[in-house]
């Protein structure tokens, strides 16, 4: 038995195993790539799983139009450097084509609308499996979702009808029209991801590290960076702070945290001491209700 094998090796081996199961079981898989640290880790793991071969799937990005420019730049550079196929579909186009109502309010999040685009791109390319970077420690509904999570033709998750998942045997059998969402890093925590990024020396978009930014303080005390999509009024106070992002979602629903973390080690120390969870600190979309994530997943969200 190997002495070197520690928990990161075990998590890595599990994720690589799951990625190879996707390649072995499905005809048309895709990797959902957001430009965030979790999906960046997935790409890194895919390199370990499939090189020197090509990825058996394209990278797919659902561009909400509210993405951080740093994340988009990172996405394009990465796809180019790897020589892998990148498919981008824009929520903006879905809104026009389907005559959808764009989000309203002060922080008009397209979190709900992106599900339409996601389901459309799945249909367009007939994807039978979509790999995502969701983790079970993020949120309590996610803690209950399988690693191979079967969705019906409408992309819906039915938490009460989940297939039992045992040992490391993943049942990816589906009927035509259905698809499976696959979460290879289900068992990783936020800290595991950062420790892995450090160990593997994975490069990240710059917004994960401290930088100066103009922000507005929300009623819950969260820091939202000012951008063209926010509907601010005179009473809003704009402050300039040193911030970084713990998670990279839309500019309209992802808050920054105050930070002086220049290096990954600083980030790891911050997380160890942080008293607020990753999604709690940064996501406005989960604050809507106790079951916000569960409801979005039932509606087809990943």
């Amino acid at each position: 038995m190997s002495k070197k094998f520690d928990y990161l090796d075990e998590l890595e081996a599990e994720a690589i195993y799951i990625l190879r199961e996707v390649a072995g079981q499905f005809d048309r898989p895709a990797l959902l790539f957001s430009g965030g640290k979790d999906s960046i880790c997935l790409v890194h793991l895919a390199l370990k799983a499939f090189r020197p071969g090509k990825f058996p799937f394209p990278l797919v990005h659902v561009d909400t139009g509210h993405n951080f420019p740093e994340a988009l730049e990172y996405r394009d550079n990465l796809a180019k450097a790897l020589g892998e196929k990148l498919i981008v579909r824009k929520v903006e186009d879905t809104i026009k084509a389907k005559k959808l109502q764009d989000a309203k309010g002060k922080f008009p999040s397209r979190n709900g609308l992106q599900t339409y685009t996601l389901l459309d791109v799945i249909e367009e390319f007939e994807f039978d499996a979509c790999i995502g970077g969701a983790r079970r420690d993020e949120e309590k509904a996610r803690a209950k979702e399988r690693i191979f999570s079967v969705r019906d033709e409408f992309g819906q998750w039915d938490p009460k009808m989940q297939r039992p998942e045992l040992w490391n045997i993943y049942n990816g059998k589906i009927n035509k029209g259905e698809n499976v969402r696959v979460f290879p890093i289900s068992n990783w925590t936020e800290l595991d991801v950062w420790n892995y990024i450090k160990r593997e020396k994975i490069e990240l978009p710059s917004i994960y590290f401290t930088h100066e930014r103009e922000c507005v303080v929300t009623e819950h005390g969260q820091l939202m960076c000012t951008n063209e999509f926010l509907k601010l009024d005179e009473t809003d106070v704009i402050v300039t702070k040193n911030v970084r992002y713990r998670t990279v979602g839309d500019m309209t629903c992802t808050a920054a945290v105050e930070s002086e973390a220049y290096k990954i080690d600083d980030i790891i120390n911050e997380i160890k001491e942080a008293k607020i969870s990753e999604r709690g600190a940064t996501r406005m979309d989960d604050r809507v209700s106790e079951a916000a994530m569960e409801d979005r997943k039932k509606g087809g969200y990943f």
Binding site: K140, R142, K144, K160, E294
Partner: peptide, 8 residues
Amino acid sequence: TDGLRAER
């Protein structure tokens, strides 16, 4: 430990 609405 109770994650789903029905459980709560």
